[in-house]
Design a binder for these strands. Structure first.
Lengths: 146, 146
DNA sequence: GTAGATGCAAATCTTTTGCTCGCCC
DNA sequence: GGGCGAGCAAAAGATTTGCATCTAC
């Protein structure tokens, strides 16, 4: 459960250096959506010789290889998460916390709309913003909260 | 059809300077999603004494007043559009063109999901990416293409 | 051995800000 | 008149890049 990224990198045919391994490991241990700076700090706890430039360059490589994805949280920085199955982000406008959810209905709808517009859907980015109900009556459909 | 922004600014109680009027006019004439730099160029054709700093500051003011909205096109810059009724963006991955569409079903779905997660939906950002079908059989449901 | 990766520092790019002066209400 | 807006230039913050060096394959 901890070597996922490393294995994916190898499978993707990437040249693995000690730095990339450290970054991969830091990503494996990141269950949130760190930006480059935060990932830099986490990676440095594993291998303190890594530079921020390498973090950026490696994230670019990983992204192009489809191993990580950018998430736009709306704070001006690029955040990253390891590529997993399709899911969406709901941002709590009061504290910036990100809640994840999945909705097949949503993806189906998007693909249907794109289709009607003459396009083949390749991907989408969605961030939903909301604030907690006063009455937290009902909870969760298929959510992971990190 | 050309004084819309100006009127909205006045209605919003904003102090109108010649610069703000020029920016408002440039926005009225922008049927796409310009970034600050592009809007700066357009505004300068109307009044060449405007600085880029004023563009940024004014866009901030307009945004806070709900008159314009940021659009994240994924190129690292902030793009803007005049606030209109809710609509979504489909980005043609092959040429970067933005197609707009509306879907009540979508907004209803999102609000329903947020609700089930214990949140009150305040807003959302969505960009759909796709490429044109080989066969452009069907077209448009409720789309405006600028 | 060699193409590709890294570190460091400088460069770039977008956006923000301090300060002084000018103009709208 | 007083406060808010504008211009200019410098600052700030995120990300990229040039170059010399090192390393995985």
């Amino acid at each position: 459960m901890d070597e996922m990224m490393l294995q994916k990198c190898i499978d993707a045919g990437l040249r693995m250096t000690s730095q990339r391994e450290a970054i991969a490991q830091a990503l494996d241990q990141s269950y949130d959506h760190p930006d480059a700076e935060l990932l830099y700090e986490r990676t440095n706890k594993i291998d303190s010789t890594i530079s921020l430039a390498t973090i950026y360059r490696t994230l670019g490589v990983f992204e192009r290889a489809g191993l990580v994805q950018k998430v736009d949280v709306g704070d001006g920085k690029s955040h990253y998460e390891t590529a997993r199955d399709q899911h969406e982000h709901l941002v709590d406008t009061e504290n910036g916390q990100i809640h994840e959810f999945k909705s097949e209905e949503l993806t189906a709808l998007l693909s249907q709309i794109a289709d009607k517009m003459g396009f083949e859907l390749t991907s989408h980015k969605l961030e939903v913003y909301g604030k907690k109900h006063g009455d937290v009556s009902c909870r969760c459909i298929q959510i992971k909260v990190y």
